[in-house]
């Protein structure tokens, strides 16, 4: 890329409110790579929670809000695979079902400029080594939306492998961690059973840190590991990439 590529950050309401370090880390990484980062402050929530909970009207209204807020941005970066999946895939289908043709068009237009963080780094900037240093054993958990939704494939792993000092362990379990938005509370027992198996797989790696590209899944895994006093921390991939020697 030539010049200073501009990246508008869609931080997500979840990170903004509960995990601001993920947003800060994303900014750090993007700026280190020479991006000019913008944060349109009118952004709130992309509507995923409402939409996936069946409150489609509200979910689509919030998605429409995101379309408006980011209308002028050439490239939008989001450190959440599930929010990207919602805006790019689910919301347009629900909008089409609701007959909101303008919103479908707006979402499709946004979808073409919207990148999940690892997509932005690997595909848009063409970078794998972001100059990070993190001398720890790290287990990578492929979240459902990154693995099966966005099909990020090797991108997160390529980024992690390029981190100085990092000892990468892959979690031998591609099942869902059990978060699933309201599923985690509506079906708390099933969610907990899924989490138990995921925690066992994470612990089996002997890693000190479990990472992923969705803060929501990390809240589930981290919440379980914390309760179990497992001695394994969770960190968003962006937070690892932001670390330097």
């Amino acid at each position: 890329m030539s010049g200073e590529p501009r990246a508008a950050l869609l931080v997500t309401c979840f990170n903004d409110t509960l995990f601001p370090d993920v947003g800060r880390a994303t900014v750090t990484v993007l700026e280190r790579l020479g991006c000019e980062v913008a944060f349109p402050a009118a952004q709130t929530c992309c509507g995923q929670m409402h939409g996936n909970s069946g409150a489609h009207e509200e979910g689509l209204a919030l998605a429409a809000r995101a379309v408006r807020v980011f209308a002028e941005e050439p490239a939008v970066v989001c450190p959440s695979a599930s929010c990207v999946g919602w805006l790019r895939e689910t919301a347009p289908r629900l909008a089409a079902e609701a007959g909101e043709d303008d919103l479908v068009a707006g979402l499709e237009q946004l979808g073409g400029r919207l990148f999940e963080l690892t997509e932005f780094l690997c595909d848009h900037l063409g970078v794998e080594d972001v100059g990070a240093f993190f001398p720890h054993r790290v287990a990578y958990h492929p979240t459902c939306h990154s693995l099966r939704g966005l099909k990020l494939g090797e991108r997160p792993l390529r980024l992690l492998r390029a981190v100085g000092g990092l000892d990468l362990a892959e979690v031998d379990d591609e099942d869902c961690c059990g978060f699933g938005g309201t599923f985690a509370v509506k079906n708390a027992d099933v969610s907990t059973a899924m989490l138990a198996d995921k925690m066992a797989a994470v612990r089996a790696t002997g890693a000190e840190v479990c990472t992923a590209v969705d803060s929501s899944c990390l809240m589930q895994i981290g919440g379980g590991l914390g309760r179990a006093r497992a001695g394994v921390r969770t960190m968003h991939l962006a937070e690892i990439l932001a670390c330097e020697r």
Partner: peptide
């Protein structure tokens, strides 16, 4: 409030951070 009880049976809730992202940005 609605989510806390079933969540907390098996999982810790994250502590609200001292500063939101947008406060830091500002």
């Amino acid at each position: 409030q609605l989510l806390a009880a079933p969540w907390s049976r098996s999982r810790e809730l994250p502590e609200p951070p001292p500063q939101t992202f947008r406060e830091w940005w500002d």
